[in-house]
Amino acid sequence: HSIEQTEIGDLAACDSLNLGNLQLVSKLKNPSCSCSVDVSAMWWERAGAKEPCIVIACEDVVSLWRSLDMSQWEKAYTWHFTEVPVLQIIPVPDVFDLICVALGNLEIREIRVLLCSSSAESEKQVLLKSGNIKAVLGLAKRRLVSSIGTFGDQQVQIITFGENGGSKDEQFLMSPDETILAFAEVQGAQEALLGSTIMNNIVIWNSKTGQLLKKMHIDDCYQASVCHRAYSEMGLLFVVLSHSCVKESQSFGNPVFQLLVINPKTTLSLDVLLYSLPQGQAGRFLDGDVKDHVAAAVLTSGTIAIWDLLLGHCTALLPPVSEQNWSLVKWSGTDSHLLAGQKDGNIFIYRY
């Protein structure tokens, strides 16, 4: 077990104007990390009490760090992967005793559950799913949705976790017969689940019955749009999409996120807002996360940008620190913190 001290001093060089609404809380350095691929903050149950933890995924190792106070972190558990590299962490809300990770080379080949047996305090991992996994998302009430395969050969399934990381219940969702790129939960409509497809369609399921409720085509001017979050308000569906392959256009700048409103009854949709970079900033979407009404993205320029979805504009810019580009950005699942990561395993925690 190792303890890492907060290092805030070297951040003084950062342009404080650029930080906007961000305030550095602590820094976590993971020396055993060769190439970090993901980060997540979650509650972990230990001896009957829940404590905030940070999970750092590198290609060959996943580690769980406990917070000793807000400035010191202790590595509690480590899981090693020798055969297939780790691609991402899959945060599952309402789960406090296990971690889900996706493994593969370019595409996800396996979903594994990482556990810690309380008696021996030893780490173990269980294979949950394998195949050509195209999209995966952790859902409320200890569930995980995944789509395996493409087109007519696609299987969409929700697994509910039982004790010891196994599946307690399995529910199949009707396939939209086109490859799903991403899933999103719908705030305000608990049983609704959204998906965005390779054909630029948004699909809605009833996650309880598995029914495919609607397939809605959205504007073709943005290809490969990925849904991050949706909100049901006054009979309308507001969907946040990210665009990683937009072309610079004179009229709209370079939108990184887009807020779309859809009437699920008629499938008619309209653009509400496009979230572009402030003037003078360049870069396309590389990685991002949306929580409540804030969206964060790592740009190809190495900078992190944050937008307030209600205000409609960029509220903070975080340029690379110590001449190292950002590669990861996630909102914390335990508080209003932002986790920003660099390839070498450094994680910076900011209050927003």
């Binding site: 009833n206 409720l213 309308l236 009437n263 699920p264 008619l268 309209l270």
Partner: peptide, 23 residues
């Protein structure tokens, strides 16, 4: 945005679509 362009809106869209969609 122009709300009228979205057609008739239902507050119970989820329940209505669930009752119409095939199981």
């Amino acid at each position: 945005c122009r709300k009228a362009d979205l057609g008739p809106i239902s507050l119970n869209w989820f329940e209505e679509l669930s009752s119409e969609a095939p199981l």
